[in-house]
């Protein structure tokens, strides 16, 4: 089974891009599974189900979404394998820009959109900077010059990646992206694999449900801003 992780900022077009790729993969008679990770709620699983692919939805609720992702992804891969999927795609949003679901030896895709602004690429961490393929969306509504500037900014922070422009609405470029999916590594399990980058840590009183503000309520892994240098 070929497994790929797709991530990207909220509303960048991840689901649309994956749907277009699914159409292209289905035309080649492949059986596909999708795992959709989200926080509070998502209806995207119904969009996937409508395409006739196998869907699993995971909502992290009160937990850190990326920690939730990594604690569940191995079981998801087993689930995909047991159900006879030839392709399994995980979709998760990078909410804090510092976390990343990308796994060593597993093809990693980051979806980012032209409307997010030219400074956005440098603000996103390993999710973008360690991806193998960067998909840039919404290119049909901005000028050629903006597309070129945006792509060069992406190139600057991830010069080794394949950068592709995909139109999630018309599907322009999706066929071409799909041909890269076909070269993703074939795996049976995620056992023994490692994340490309450690996830941001927190282990403090607020992780355990503290709501009161003030030094006396803060215990554990707490970091303080430097308030002195501006005086």
């Amino acid at each position: 089974m070929r497994f790929l992780t797709v991530s990207g900022p909220p509303s960048s077009g991840k689901t649309s891009v994956i749907l277009r790729v699914i159409e292209a993969l289905q035309a080649r008679m492949h059986k596909i599974g999708v795992v959709k990770f989200d926080c509070l709620l998502t209806d995207d699983d119904t969009l996937y189900a409508k395409k006739g692919v196998l869907v699993k939805k995971g909502l992290s609720g009160a937990l850190c979404p990326d920690h939730y992702f990594v604690s569940n992804i191995e079981a998801c891969v087993t689930w995909g394998k047991e159900n006879g999927c030839e392709y399994l795609i995980s979709e998760s949003a990078g909410l804090c820009n510092r976390c990343s679901p990308h796994i060593n030896d597993i093809t990693a895709i980051c979806v980012i959109d032209n409307l997010s602004g030219v400074n956005t690429p440098r603000k996103i961490g390993p999710m973008l900077k360690s991806a193998d393929i960067v998909v840039i969306t919404k290119g049909d509504i901005v000028s050629q010059a903006e597309r070129e500037v945006f792509a060069s900014r992406v190139k600057q922070v991830n010069p080794g990646a394949v950068i592709m422009n995909i139109n999630g609405i018309t599907g322009q470029g999706a066929f071409e992206l799909t041909s890269l999916f076909e070269t993703a590594s074939d795996i049976d399990t995620l056992k023994g694999k490692t994340l490309r980058f450690s996830m941001p840590a927190a282990l403090c009183s607020y992780c355990l449900g503290e709501t009161r503000i003030g030094d006396e309520y803060q215990t554990g892994n707490v970091r303080k801003m430097d308030m002195e240098d501006n005086k």
């Binding site: 032209n114 509504i141 901005v142 000028s143 050629q144 903006e146 070129e148 190139k155 950068i163």
Partner: peptide, 27 residues
């Protein structure tokens, strides 16, 4: 196919707009 520096094709379509908050010269 994949080079961003040497793209074969530049595109201009009807729905395209400028979205950056810059003057024409800065842009």
């Amino acid at each position: 196919r994949f080079s961003t520096e040497h793209k074969l094709v530049a595109q201009l379509s009807q729905n395209m707009n400028f979205v950056m908050d810059l003057t024409a010269e800065e842009f």
